[in-house]
């Protein structure tokens, strides 16, 4: 929306023009990912193997779903820190419904669908609470979701203690595990799910009335209200979508781990926000795309994987990830300032 509108200014020639084209391109992060991939390939040729590619993909999928939800919230100039706690809470609630060790619906045919519905409901409920506090009570999103994050992270652990002596709820039904690890037509179930979520999210943002309204609320909330946009409901919708996406991610993570665990996703909060921002979505609202988030997640996971394969220690992975987020932010700032000159 923003980046494309810069085209058609006075054109310098040659390499500078190419540089400008790259800098303002929507696909900048994709190009960076490719460049990075090619750059590390000589050091870790295995990166190009089907095995590693599959791993990168499967690492990307759940992260991508949460990040897409986060994109919605950032577009309305909010932030949702509670997503990791939603992942954890949904995981243990879902597991408690379907586990063979005394789950609410253990051994019933409804166990798996029931559990999945319960998980999505958890996400929706927490998202609805966030939305309610931000809209109706006028509380800042950062603090609201910070407290819900603290609360439900704790609640997930507490909840687990009612169902098991150990730290996680195991013995999930075969049907659920297959769902998480199987494939349909050679394509993993998870990929089908994420593709569906991604396409739906893209269509909502790019084509639907709600999408236009989300951008409007992020760009100028008062102008949106004066133009008849139901601002409160739109913002609530963003938080609801974020909650639901986090719940879907929880289903994917739980399926992969085959247990419901309350510390699921605890460490990925900064990855999620980092990936969305790397993609180019603004923290100040009004700007963002699903495709950008896909690129952002790809870039982050690519770096993660390559660094691990390079045999770099944990500290380098941390530090380099940080540098990448910083670099992306600097590029975005430069781009915005450059664009402001016209």
């Amino acid at each position: 929306m923003i980046a494309t509108s810069i085209a058609g200014e006075a054109r310098p020639s040659g390499p500078r023009r190419l540089l400008r084209h790259l800098l303002f391109s929507e696909y900048l992060v994709l190009y960076l990912s490719l460049a990075y991939f090619l750059a590390v390939l000589p050091f870790v040729p295995q990166m190009a193997s089907a095995e590693v590619m599959r791993n990168i993909l499967s690492d990307m999928l759940p992260l991508l779903v949460v990040a897409i939800g986060q994109t919605f919230v950032l577009i309305v100039a909010g932030i949702d820190l509670s997503v990791t706690s939603i992942i954890a809470m949904a995981s243990v609630v879902g597991a408690s419904v379907m586990t063979g060790d005394g789950g609410y619906l253990a051994d019933s045919a409804l166990a798996v669908p029931g559990a999945m519905i319960a998980m999505v409901l958890v996400g929706l409920a927490i998202g609805a609470f966030n939305g309610f506090c931000v809209n109706r009570l006028g509380m800042p999103p950062f603090i609201v979701t910070l407290t819900t994050m603290m609360f439900f992270s704790g609640a997930a652990i507490w909840f687990t203690t009612f169902h098991t002596e150990t730290s996680s709820i195991a013995n999930l039904p075969h049907g659920f595990v297959v769902l998480g690890q199987g494939n349909l037509g050679g394509v993993p179930h998870a990929l089908w799910v994420v593709a569906a979520v991604g396409i739906a999210a893209h269509l909502v943002l790019a084509r639907s009335v709600l999408g236009r309204r989300l951008y409007a609320c992020g760009q100028n909330r008062r102008a949106a209200a004066v133009s008849g946009v139901p601002v409160g409901r739109v913002i609530a919708a963003a938080f609801l979508i974020s909650g639901a996406c986090a719940a879907v991610a929880s289903i994917l993570y739980t399926g992969r781990l085959q247990t419901g665990t309350p510390i699921l996703g605890q460490t990925i909060l900064l990855d999620i926000i980092g990936a969305v921002v790397i993609g180019g979505t603004s923290l100040f609202g009004g700007k963002g795309k699903v495709l950008w988030t896909v690129f952002g997640v790809l870039f982050l996971v690519l770096i993660d994987t390559s660094l691990k394969m390079l045999g770099l220690s944990l500290f380098s992975v941390f530090a380099i990830k940080g540098c990448v987020i910083l670099l992306a932010a600097v590029i975005d700032a430069v781009r915005t300032r450059y664009a402001a000159r016209f």
Partner: peptide
């Protein structure tokens, strides 16, 4: 500036904002 326009959006997006329902 404060209530009438989205300054960083295009002319077309601004004009469309109040009529989205009619064109959905």
């Amino acid at each position: 500036r404060g209530e009438g326009l989205m300054m960083h959006a295009t002319i077309a997006d601004n004009i469309a904002l109040a009529s989205l329902d009619e064109y959905a």
